[in-house]
Design a protein around this nucleic acid. Structure first.
Lengths: 242, 242
DNA sequence: CTCGGTTAAAATGAATGCAAACCTGCGGTT
DNA sequence: AACCGCAGGTTTGCATTCATTTTAACCGAG
């Protein structure tokens, strides 16, 4: 029965994939790779479910060779599992995996904060402050989606402000992993919202004073708290579900 | 002329590759991947030089399909560059790339230190202390290679002590990038040796007291100092070379 | 009816084939 | 002499094909 879900998902994507239009022969790999990654990250494939290559080929209108190349890359990125002779499946993250992922993000953001403090310009700080105030407005008005969008924007801007491409790229692969879990959106519905807001206040303050060490610690704890909230809400859901 | 160098390197590898022995059909991909990665990391291919697929196929006794899959993965790992329709080459790191890489390592180790402080057992601390004292011995006797080996072992143990697989895996891909540059070995020949030793003292002390925040800062700075030393010695070499 | 073994269909892993893109060397033009 | 174009071989990107493994369907024995 999972198959039927999978198939319908796949066929619905077939038209969508077609809508993207034919791509240049040259860039097929990169294009296919990002399309497939998005497809997985957006949760169109059931984690743990088997994915026959042939179906994906039809869905994306490519032959198996480039598709398999893309799958190998996605496996290296940790989004997909490849079982020898038994095909590929969307990786199913354990609780431990999720915790690990949050910790890595904590480490990366923490480092980004330190580096940003050393490099960031006043203008860039002002930009982040602006985002922060806007976000505060959404917080007061209890506009969760907008709040969430700005929250993400702030974190991304901070990472970008580190001026480190490798860090940013690594950060992205881990946020991609997280997005695959529907957590992020739900987490802040809890009573953690206020706490998160206070942590953000401190972040901006530390950044304003260019206190790298302080910012690093705040960010690290902030991310770990995010995980704790995620873990809690996950537990609640599971309790409800079963 | 680069071609001739490349070719001789490749043919010499052919025998070496053969020495590994035939592998199981199933694991060809993983096996080829790590062999190719090692081959590149060990510097057997000239950075920036073109690598015809055919040559690599002959060297590793595989057809182009699995080889290309491996190259795509290595490209995703950042070890190889793929130019559309123009083949693959070993990635040539700019000074900025190297700096970025050290900073990411700093972030990761720093996070590992924080996490380790929260989790590490007394026995594990004792192990690291033992390694540290051994290393100190080599330092006193000016035995650079042994010192270097233990230094690496300590850092790896610390990362392992974080208990975070994703962090450890990411750490490895970045150390692989670094190993591709011959820096690491040369760096400590400079007068930084003493400083590095003092930093390690502080690290072990912070770890013993389970002071995560302190350890995080020490590690971060330690790694950045490593980079500064590397950059300096690089400059010196360049000055000599030209 | 269930379980185990057998066999056919399907899926995977790798090799081969083919068209398009790229490099190379040569001749013609300015 | 330097530059441009352009045929030839070479290399790449993708599709197709082949061999092996896995999966399922089936059938008979208990």
């Amino acid at each position: 029965m999972t198959d039927s879900v999978l198939n319908s998902e796949l066929s619905s994507q077939a038209t969508k994939a077609h809508a993207y239009g034919k791509v240049d022969r040259d860039n097929l790999h990169d294009d296919l790779l990002s399309r497939l990654r998005d497809f997985i990250v957006e949760g169109h494939l059931l984690p743990g479910g088997r994915i026959p290559e042939r179906h994906l080929c039809e869905a994306f209108h490519v032959s198996r060779t480039p598709l398999r190349e893309a799958l190998k890359v996605l496996a290296a990125e940790g989004l997909v599992e490849l079982l020898p002779n038994r095909g590929s499946r969307v990786r199913q993250f354990t609780d431990k995996d999720i915790k690990d992922c949050f910790e890595v993000l904590a480490g990366l953001e923490s480092a980004a904060g330190r580096l940003a403090c050393a490099r960031i310009t006043d203008d860039e700080v002002a930009e982040i402050e602006q985002l922060h105030y806007d976000m505060y407005g959404h917080y007061m008005r209890r506009e969760l989606p907008e709040y969430f969008r700005l929250n993400q924007a702030i974190h991304e801007k901070l990472v970008a402000a580190s001026g480190n491409d490798a860090l940013q790229a690594t950060y992205r692969t881990f946020t991609a992993r997280m997005r695959q879990l529907r957590y992020s959106a739900n987490v802040l519905a809890s009573d953690r919202w206020g706490q998160a807001m206070r942590e953000h206040e401190k972040m901006v303050d530390a950044l304003r004073r260019r206190s790298g060490e302080e910012l690093a610690t705040i960010l690290f704890e902030h991310l770990l708290n995010k995980w704790r909230a995620a873990a809690d809400s996950l537990e609640r859901e599971d309790a409800q579900g079963s």
